[in-house]
């Protein structure tokens, strides 16, 4: 009596199918390793790819100042000495573009105007494309104590390379810039996501040189 075998020996009963060569397998492994590390590296920029809160032209990463930083935020903090404002300490917002979505540059003149958040003090700093403040002669920052503010409390600042009357924030001529707005000891640091755009200053381009 013929009995059906329980298992087929290797290669029996199935047609020969193509299999992976050692070189192909090595290329697949190396390629995927490079793609995985490369994509991680590409996302390790000056700002984390997730966790952003947008209010008008301003962006905040409130989780960077907490204990529950997301993995990409943790990478950002691990790659260079950052000291983000803690959640109870204040709120940091950055802007890289004006109201029309065009990149901020020292070639243009801007009006920064509107409301500010209740706080014990705030500062506005000009930074380079890497988010680092300009140093030395090109350093430029304002604090609320430097400004002349009308009775309605709405600030109006002219940001430009050429000196302007009133509240003036100097921009480095011709360079791409960013603005960092920090509110110290504000009760709204935890609720930044609920803020309407009108709660923060607008950045309008007035004109550009050249």
């Amino acid at each position: 009596m013929a009995v059906t075998p329980l298992t087929l020996p290797r290669g029996a009963g199935a047609p020969d199918r193509p299999s992976i060569g050692t070189a192909t397998l090595a290329a697949l492994l190396l390629g995927s390793l490079a793609a995985g590390i490369g994509s991680a590296w590409a996302l390790m920029g000056e700002t984390p790819p997730i966790g952003v809160v947008r209010v008008g032209v301003w962006e905040a990463y409130p989780r960077l100042g907490g204990a529950d930083v997301d993995p990409y935020g943790r990478v950002l903090l691990a790659r260079a000495p950052h000291l983000p404002l803690a959640a109870g300490e204040g709120l940091q917002l950055t802007a890289a573009a004006d109201e029309a979505g065009q990149s901020l540059t020292g070639r243009c003149r801007y009006r920064i105007s509107g409301a500010t958040l209740p706080s014990r003090g705030w500062t506005l700093t000009v930074v380079n494309r890497s988010g680092r403040p300009f140093a030395g002669q090109r350093a430029s920052a304002l604090g609320d104590a430097d400004l002349v503010v009308p009775e309605n409390g709405r600030v109006e600042i002219i940001a430009s390379a050429a000196a302007a009357s009133g509240n003036w924030l100097r921009l480095p001529a011709g360079e791409r810039v960013g603005l960092v707005l920090r509110f110290y000891d504000t009760p709204l640091s935890a609720g930044v996501g609920q803020l309407p755009p009108s709660a923060l200053p607008r950045i309008e381009r007035l004109d550009c040189a050249g």
Partner: peptide, 16 residues
């Protein structure tokens, strides 16, 4: 894609 994803996640977790 699977291997690249694993490499990506490991890189993000191990760098800090």
């Amino acid at each position: 894609v699977t291997l690249a994803g694993i490499a990506h996640i490991l890189t993000v977790l191990l760098v800090p």
